[in-house]
Amino acid sequence: MASREEIIANYQNVAPGEFGPDIPGIKVALPPGSTVAAITLDACGGPNGSGLDRQILDTLRYFQIPATLFINQRWAQEHPETMGELVDDTLFDIENHGTKHLPLSVDGQAVYGIEGTRSVGEVYDEIMGNQEYLRSEYGVQCQFFRPGTAFLDETSAQICLDLGLTPAGFSLNLDNGATLPAESVEERVTHFAGGDIGLGHFNIPSSGTGTGLARALPQLMERDIEFATLRQATR
């Protein structure tokens, strides 16, 4: 794996390229021909994002549906006991959602009013701060990275790959950042098909995500939609 110094030397003069949630280099869907779909759920942390929606975890466990949990370092630090529980649960894979939940950019591009990382060195720190935290505290070696807001530029995506992490996007937005009512979440979740990567959140218990997911999953099971974690689906 490249060091911080090597990453800076290799990319300090490289243009950022396109910036967005589905730029070249981001995995926004499962491999062609996939018959399974992937539920991915973010825990963003911070003053307004450090809650825990246990309804979602309980629903997934009840139906025995695997999911990939993208966890920000701030959220993990707020929930050490829950982290231990999630790491030990074979139904879930834990992946990297950044150190400070920033958009990933080599020149400070912003989205939704959130300024991104401002340099190659800050890109490295946003990725590897949490990567090392999850490894040292919980023994988790993450394989996927999703930046805060899911936005990054092409150079940052390549840096992720150089650090041994696949930048993960999505093909199906389940809850618009945990802002949708249950009826809207239910409707979106029912659109899952083989190959989809769905993005939701399990850190806002007041949102409609938990109830919408609980209503929609039995409908998907009746259609024989099968789910896998990103690791399982990309082996």
Rank of each mutant, 00 (worst) to 15 (best):
E5H: 05
E6Q: 07
A9I: 09
Y11N: 05
A15N: 11
G17K: 06
P21E: 15
P31W: 13
A38L: 07
T40W: 06
T40A: 07
L41R: 12
C44Y: 13
G46K: 11
N48C: 09
G51R: 04
L52Y: 15
L52R: 12
R54E: 11
D58R: 12
Y62P: 01
Y62L: 10
Y62S: 09
Y62K: 12
I65L: 03
P66K: 10
F70E: 05
F70D: 06
Q73E: 15
E85R: 06
L86C: 04
T90H: 12
L91Y: 08
N96S: 02
G98A: 01
T99D: 01
G108T: 10
A110Q: 13
Y112N: 10
Y112T: 08
G113T: 15
I114M: 11
E115Y: 05
G116H: 04
G116R: 05
R118F: 02
R118L: 04
S119F: 00
V123T: 02
M128K: 01
G129C: 01
E132L: 01
Y133P: 01
L134H: 01
S136A: 03
Y138E: 03
C142T: 15
Q143M: 08
L152R: 08
E154G: 05
S156I: 05
S156M: 06
S156N: 00
I159E: 00
L161N: 04
L161V: 09
A168T: 10
F170M: 11
L174R: 02
N176G: 09
A178F: 14
P181T: 15
V185I: 13
E186A: 14
H191D: 10
D196R: 10
G200M: 05
I204P: 01
S207N: 10
S207G: 08
G210Q: 11
G212K: 05
L213V: 13
R215L: 14
A216L: 09
P218E: 12
M221S: 00
E226M: 08
T229W: 03
L230Y: 02
Q232W: 11
